[in-house]
Simulated scan of single mutants.
Amino acid sequence: MRKLIYTFGVSLDGFVNDRDGSIDWAEPDEELHQFHNDRYREIEISLHGRRLYELMAAHWPYVPASASRIERDFAKLWTEKPKVVFSRTLTEVRWNSRLVSDNAVEEVRRLKADGDGTMEVGGANLATSLIPHGLIDEYQLFLSPVVLGGGTPMFPPLDNHIRLRLAETRHFDTVVMLRYLTV
């Protein structure tokens, strides 16, 4: 069965973007960006919500040749990586993406059962729709030293606790990574 990882930059008060939807407070330095590139290479399929897909699709396919090597590397990785985009409003997707407009929970269950690699989920709304169904196997939080005071929370309100086991911590100059496995 495929493993599903929820990876996100998060503020100290638990938000993945600020009240205006901005993530400019979470811009990675070179070391962290390289870490994300290396991690992304290991991902078999990337699951995107509409907002994240639109954000990524507006930027990464158009990274100029003058961009850093790390940015050009990620641009190539992102455009080539198989992606499943969940949206009820988009009518088409590009860059090795497949659009799903039906039940995200059922599609993710099918994708998990259909292989033995690793998938990641990107987009807080998509991830929070999967969390209550127990579909996330691992949480990777990149904790930034900022308090936003509002925005999109990383986790939805839940009826039950989610038991986790700390599997790894890693300190970068700009964030601390906390990697948790579900138990």
Results as ranks from 00 to 15, higher is better:
G150R: 12
N160C: 01
K112V: 01
E120M: 08
L111T: 04
T89D: 09
Y53T: 01
S144Q: 10
F8W: 08
A58V: 06
P132G: 02
A26H: 09
L135V: 06
L164R: 05
P28T: 03
R69I: 10
R94I: 01
R98V: 14
V85G: 00
F142H: 11
L130C: 09
V108K: 01
I23H: 01
G21N: 12
R2T: 14
G122N: 05
N37G: 07
E31P: 12
S101W: 05
A167T: 12
T169L: 11
V16G: 03
K112M: 12
F142S: 03
A26F: 12
N96S: 08
P145R: 14
R163E: 15
L164A: 13
L77E: 04
N96V: 04
W95G: 01
L4V: 02
S66G: 13
V108N: 01
D38W: 02
N37L: 12
M177Y: 08
H161M: 04
W95Q: 11
L158W: 13
W25V: 02
R98P: 09
S11K: 05
R94S: 14
L77D: 02
R51L: 08
E106K: 11
V63R: 06
E106G: 12
E44S: 10
S46M: 15
Y53Q: 00
Q34F: 10
F86N: 00
I131S: 00
E80C: 10
G134D: 08
G49L: 07
A65L: 15
H133F: 15
E30I: 09
D173C: 11
R51C: 03
A57Q: 03
L12W: 05
G115P: 04
I45A: 09
R50D: 05
Q140S: 11
H133M: 05
P64V: 11
D73T: 15
Y53W: 08
K3T: 12
G14L: 07
M56Y: 09
A26T: 15
W25Y: 10
V16E: 00
G49Q: 01
T182G: 03
Y139A: 01
L148A: 05
G123A: 07
R165G: 11
Y40A: 14
I23R: 04
S101G: 15
F86D: 01
R179P: 01
D116A: 10
K112A: 06
P82R: 03
G149S: 13
L181G: 00
I162A: 02
L90W: 09
S144D: 08
E27K: 11
L90M: 13
L178A: 12
D159F: 09
R110N: 15
A26V: 10
H161T: 12
A75H: 12
R88C: 07
E106R: 09
V147L: 15
E44A: 07
D20V: 08
L148I: 14
R165T: 15
V100D: 02
L164G: 08
E71Q: 12
N160Y: 15
P157T: 10
T174Y: 02
R51E: 11
L148Q: 13
L178G: 04
K83V: 08
G14S: 09
